[in-house]
Design a protein around this nucleic acid. Sequence first.
DNA 1: TGGCATT
Length: 483
Amino acid sequence: MATLTNGQVDAVVHGGAASTNGLVNGISHTHSPASCATIPMKDHDAIKLFIGQIPRNLDEKDLRPLFEEFGKIYELTVLKDRFTGMHKGCAFLTYCARESALKAQTALHEQKTLPGMNRPIQVKPADSESRGDRKLFVGMLNKQQCEDDVRRLFESFGSIEECTILRGPDGNSKGCAFVKYSTHAEAQAAISTLHGSQTMPGASSSLVVKFADTDKERTIRRMQQMAGQMGIFNPMALQFGAYGAYAQVQQQAALMASVGQGGYLSPMAAFAAAQMQHMATINGLPGAPMTPTSGGSTPPGITAPTVTSIPSPISVNGFTGLPPPQANGQPPAEAMFTNGIHPYPAQSPTAADPLQQAYAGVQQYAAAFPAAYGQISQAFPQPPPIIPQQQREGPEGCNLFIYHLPQEFGDGELMQMFLPFGNVISSKVFVDRATNQSKCFGFVSFDNPGSAQAAIQSMNGFQIGMKRLKVQLKRPKDANRPY
DNA sequence: TGGCATT
């Protein structure tokens, strides 16, 4: 077998994989073993196995004999690193027959150790097989609903193995839950019938019923949240922020205008141009920082601390720089910077590869940061703690309702627009869930009422394009309740 | 006129 070239083996393996599309399930039993070899067919309930603890010098052709003992192989693929092509020491294996997979698992899993390995071989259903495809995430529940209420709602679709309400540290429901059925079909039935079917009292939109995140998705979500928390430290925000320089705004406006086609001025460019005029008017000096009139977030009498060492410009705030591409093929940086938080979205038009863009973005971010660090350290004597995302409502009198936003404005643009008036702890543009379109209104929360008032004074009636912003204090949630 | 969340 050592005489086979890689090319030959790859061709065989790839041929098997490529022929899976369009095959009709359930006819494999009528196939003779001979034809299975040329046109592999698998059971409709075949199990994809994960094989772990494989020596890196063994490829598909070396592994086949080991596994063929238990049945005809439908597909065998050694996992290789996406970037380096390096053998990752594991593989996916699908037998034509489900029974073969079960036999192989029983005979091999943790039963023997391949030469050169410290731990026994792993043979078990792949994550994709056992993934949370029976487990549902349920959102938009009433926070008063308990496990039994949720069970009652879901029990008619199948047998529920597990039902958990997600609760905060205080024991209060977060308004969502996990429901695990015994089969995928039951879970799917519940989604089809219940998702969006009703709106619970006190919930802001209709019931959400979907498959729960896999571990992988959870990891990505966490990183995205982390990136979101860094929002105020991204240079885009700083350019428009309380400490942003006029020249930078000018540059940004020119850049954005140049991106527009056929005379169309992007909303941000239009806004930037308008803001420059506006700020010139209220500050008198265009070059002066756009510091709010209300004292902002810099505590009086606090001077910048003596910074003895800044190990890395971007190590403040707990983010220690760009991790290397991960062996699992999911570079963290990619996830972070494809979350609408591109530091310089329009400056690398030639970088086609998203990863390359991410690297470029981080480099520019790092380059921009030392200047920013000095500013931030004045406002925060200590590196700022990571603020939990749940705590988003500002104190009484700090929350604004903004109407007549440009259609294209998202949370980021909204935040940038209000940063000049103080510390924005949250910005949210209301989006229609069905169409994903902005409803042209949103909310901004400051950490103090003075900033909110300053924002109202300056921004209420502010013209953007054909529209004028309406900026006022948000109505308290229970304002319409009689008692 | 939100807080839309992932053990």
